[in-house]
Design a binder for these strands. Structure first.
Lengths: 261, 261
DNA sequence: TAGTGGTCTAGACCACTCC
DNA sequence: GAGTGGTCTAGACCACTAG
């Protein structure tokens, strides 16, 4: 049990036990539980540095290290004099600009429209399972399945096929997705998700070409987005972007983290 | 001019002047100059923490903060007892697995082969300029232009078109690229580059389809990789991956930096 | 065993911004 | 004006590993 300097005696929180993990790592996990678990809602104020330090029985420098890390990773925002707040999750990432389809279309000056094709609670069919290739346990027979098309102005440009895990997001069972786009709705409803993207180029099938008003065999960008919280998978979506009109931009530095110098 | 605690008097380095930027930010820049500028070669040992701290006239904690940041960003690696070393640049990123084509093919158990189609020192033609859409100043009339095909076993799978800036990399003028793949060679020769990727799906033109042994109009993944050091652009490459065989994987967390929780 | 990085503390000053 | 985060210091102990 490490105890540095003139370590405090008063046991304020049981955080100094079980060694083999650094103090700030353990404290960070505790705070992350509050943030990701939803105990601290997005926008809520976090106790001030000195208070947190006291409550965990650590020095302010140590607490500052934890909070600085959380801030760098985007979980909280900090302002002098005002305090520390739980961040509002942003739509994916500045590194990979594909983000919310709504924002993407708005940036082009066009009006975005979502058109629902199907909304059901059922297991996946065999083709859908092949498309989504999800971490979905094969036994999952109650999924919220959503299909629809995104329009930019009057032009269809993205066909979406999505499965939502009702265990991770029960609210999806009561949402009809008639007018709300499932991607944005999920971002607002289930914060703190992590997404993995797989990107391919494929030729549009006849059915897909019809939906997107393309010629048969036109090249499309297929993005498979698998989304999870730290605990469970939330949703798997296949976004098929029409033709050469859409592109992805990603920037990377030397490290392996995606940070530019 | 900030001077905290019992600040030292002995002027060891002129680093404590010009305020309005934090101490460790200025020190970090100095070290980065050495690393990126090539004064400290990849693999070389960096002075130990206490030495650096003394030479800049700062406390060890402050120096540690700088070194920890550089380590997190991938510029250096640190080992207890052994010391701190300038990192060897890795092939792009663990976030975005496309990396060196050589490694990619090797991972599939196939033999990689590079076949040169053209190597010249000349300005870009109009089509090439359209393809590469580079930050290349239009006036650049002495570029190293390389075209070739990557094979996996006996199957061609990637057509590469590349321009290299001889100002940023004079060694390219003396390299014939007959047997060495330009991407890997550049990584080994010009360390500490940053790359921006743009990804699209396009239909292969007739000429491209012939090179890649595809049918006309087959969907291909086009990756435009623009690479630069902090000072200048180094190379622009267009990699055309054949068909549905290749895909990209990228993972993102909430923050906007590309870090998973 | 000793060198090196990793972590922690208590105390201090500074700068920003809301009141 | 005063609360809050941002930064810096000097000193200390610990853990890992090369020799």
């Amino acid at each position: 049990m490490p105890s540095y300097g003139t370590g405090r005696k008063r046991s304020v929180e049981v955080i100094r036990n079980r060694a083999s993990e650094t103090l700030h790592a353990r404290i960070k996990k505790r705070l992350l539980d509050n943030i990701v678990g939803g105990t601290w809602k997005p926008g809520a104020q976090v106790p001030i540095e000195t208070e947190l330090a006291a409550s965990f029985g650590v020095s302010r420098m140590t607490m500052n290290k934890v909070l600085t890390q959380l801030s760098n990773e985007g979980y909280i925002t900090r302002h002098k004099k005002r305090g520390t707040f739980v961040a509002r999750p942003r739509s994916q990432s500045a590194v990979m600009e594909i983000a919310s389809i709504r924002e993407e279309v708005a940036a082009l000056g066009e009006r975005h429209r979502w058109s629902l094709l199907e909304r059901a609670v059922r297991p996946l069919g065999p083709e859908e399972r092949a498309l989504l290739n999800p971490m979905v346990d094969a036994a999952a027979d109650r999924l919220v399945v959503v299909r629809g098309v995104h329009f930019s102005g009057e032009v269809p440009f993205c066909h979406e096929t999505r499965a939502i895990n009702p265990r991770a997001c029960p609210a999806a069972l009561e949402q009809d997705f008639e007018t709300v786009e499932p991607g944005q709705w999920l971002l607002d409803t289930v914060p703190w998700i992590t997404a993995q993207h797989t990107i391919r180029a494929i030729n549009a099938s006849r059915a897909e070409a019809r939906v997107l008003a393309l010629d048969d065999g036109q090249a499309c960008l297929e993005i498979l987005r698998q989304t999870r919280t730290s605990a469970d998978w939330v949703t798997t979506a296949r976004l098929l972007y029409s033709g050469e009109a859409h592109q992805l931009v990603a920037q990377f530095g030397p490290g392996g983290r995606g940070n530019a110098p």
